[in-house]
Design a protein around this nucleic acid. Structure first.
Lengths: 332, 332
DNA sequence: TTGTAAGCGTTATCAC
DNA sequence: GTGATAACGCTTACAA
């Protein structure tokens, strides 16, 4: 594989000139630049990244460590990060921590070893393995969940959950349940808190709460256990869980909207395909990613700026699954 | 940031010994190993990846370049690749080419520059930018779509499409349409070919075919144009398209299964949530990824083995959307 | 078993 | 404006 010296020889110049020419440095004779360019082309020269990174002590690579690649919310964040990073000349590599602190740690170590320029992270827990990143001075920004002493991009989940619950109350539901994620995952706790906020503010009860994993199976189990309390509406904190929730409801012969109101976090593409269409809380996922990338690039440029926390807001999208009276138009 | 020399000094040994100790090399005095370990610990030492890679002329990183991170089929492949790579001590970084040859090229260049150990790729076109990888001798395996002179893991899409179409014929549908992806994307062409195979074998017609992008919008447009031909069943080649297809059907007051039979590629999590549940062709996505990783690791170990093509098969899962007579039980 | 030193391919500093 | 040359931090012959 061709090295810079091969190119230099072929072009009849020194390696220093090749380097300068290829990196568009200030002052190189245009004629030489051309010669170097064609030589590089002919030899199929690709600069050796590790060597360059070693010398420069920096990389144009960002790491994005997310907790679930199979969750559309996180892949949308990925798109946002990527688009913004791309235009600034950075590549982004995606790592899947799978909601597993051990895997998260592994990937943080990889990021550390490879000396990436920065890390975007959706931390599995708030005191996650980031100290190692801090210690080394690698810029980090947290998304979706808070992280001590970091730039962060969050969504006001608690408020959104409160509004969603208030919407259910206003729609006339009386026994509203909440299906949320594991204790300790901040979004799960916040959404539960928002649910309680709404109930308390309205002087309503009872509190019907169940937790489960942020997966379809978690939603299933939580709902099965919740059904004994005969809820007439459900707030579901995560779209993967929603799948399990709707399955259980269907199996029990309960129809969303008619028998049980349902509002779920995250606006999945299939929300309008089910009957009745699903009322959801839409989070600006792509924008979260874009903002995280912006913050990260800003911190790379200026490592000592004070940490900033951006809080975006979610929006309730009302559809048929929370219209109590009528159910679907298509039903007879 | 601590270097190997810092650790050496702290432990009172040479850098060579540190290197050997930390890499678990054959013969180092256990006492020294311990001293080195604690020294490294105290200093928060992380070996410098670029330096190591430069010296070793290799990396324990695999690149996975997929055409759409937001497509569950590809993220499932990613999981498969990751799981297998992980256990072999490799990290995998995910890159999103977004079905865009230009982005694909960029990421291949990044992979080349960073000297990754190997690449798993779902190529946007069969003569994609892989020559550069071949030229440099970087192992590549193609997934989902063929690539000249490479290891590959494919699914017999054509056969699967044929079987799906035969299923529609057997169910009594007479005007079967096919909604597929852009010409040139192999899976799109294969699935269309399989559809034709079935029609021809049964001496049936007419051929009702429309292409669109592998996205919801592509499915929408194709279906809108197809509706003029009054199909009574549809084979849809991609799950993202399926969303658009079902939306259009719904807007036109046509109900899957009752008015129009629908069978779609890829078993999405929400397939059983719609009414009636969606008949699908399930591809073994995770297994595709796992096999691709195995092939890649094998080739890294033995660069000159002859290329192998693994062809996995897909499975038709019959659900309500292709039961002509009754439609959904829940409908009156 | 351990240390010394060369070299991986770049880029940056310094002369020219 | 261009060319030597010294790092960057690590691994690995080769010596001891």
């Amino acid at each position: 594989m061709a090295t810079i010296s091969d190119v230099a020889r072929q072009a009849g110049v020194s390696t220093a000139t090749v380097s300068r020419a290829l990196n568009g440095k200030s002052t190189v004779d245009p004629a030489l630049v051309k010669r170097v360019r064609t030589a590089a082309e002919e030899l199929g020269y690709h600069p050796n990244g590790p060597a360059r990174n070693l010398r420069r002590q920096e990389t144009a690579v960002l790491a994005l460590i997310i907790s679930d690649v199979e969750n559309p919310f996180f892949t949308a964040i990925a798109r946002g990060v990527e688009d913004t990073a791309q235009t600034a000349g950075y590549s982004v590599v995606l790592c899947n921590s799978d909601e597993n602190p051990e895997k998260e740690r592994r990937y943080i170590d990889v990021a550390l070893q490879e000396r990436v320029a920065g890390v975007v992270l959706s931390p599995t827990d708030p005191s996650s393995s980031v100290e190692r990143l801090h210690q080394r001075g690698t810029p980090v920004v947290a998304v979706d969940r808070p992280l001590i002493a970091c730039d962060q991009v969050l969504v006001d989940s608690r408020l959104a959950a409160r509004e969603a619950t208030e919407h259910l109350i206003a729609a006339g539901y009386a026994r509203i349940g909440c299906v949320t994620g594991p204790a300790g995952i901040r979004t799960a706790d916040d959404r539960l808190a928002g649910y309680r906020d709404a109930l308390d503010a309205a002087g309503r009860g009872p509190r019907l709460e169940r937790r489960g994993e942020y997966r379809a199976a978690g939603g299933r189990q939580a709902t099965e256990r919740l059904l004994g309390d005969s809820p007439d509406a459900l707030l579901v904190a995560n779209s993967a869980m929603t799948i399990g929730v709707l399955e259980v409801l269907g199996e029990a012969g309960l129809r969303p909207g008619r028998d049980v109101g349902v509002v779920a976090f995250d606006d999945v593409p299939w929300a309008t395909l089910i009957d009745p269409p699903l009322t959801v809380v839409r989070q600006p996922a792509r924008e979260i990613g874009a903002e995280a990338a912006r913050l990260l690039l800003a911190r790379i440029a200026e490592p000592n700026r004070p940490p900033v926390a951006t809080v975006l807001s979610a929006r309730l999208i009302e559809r048929g699954s929370t219209r109590r009276a009528h159910g679907s138009a298509r039903t007879c």
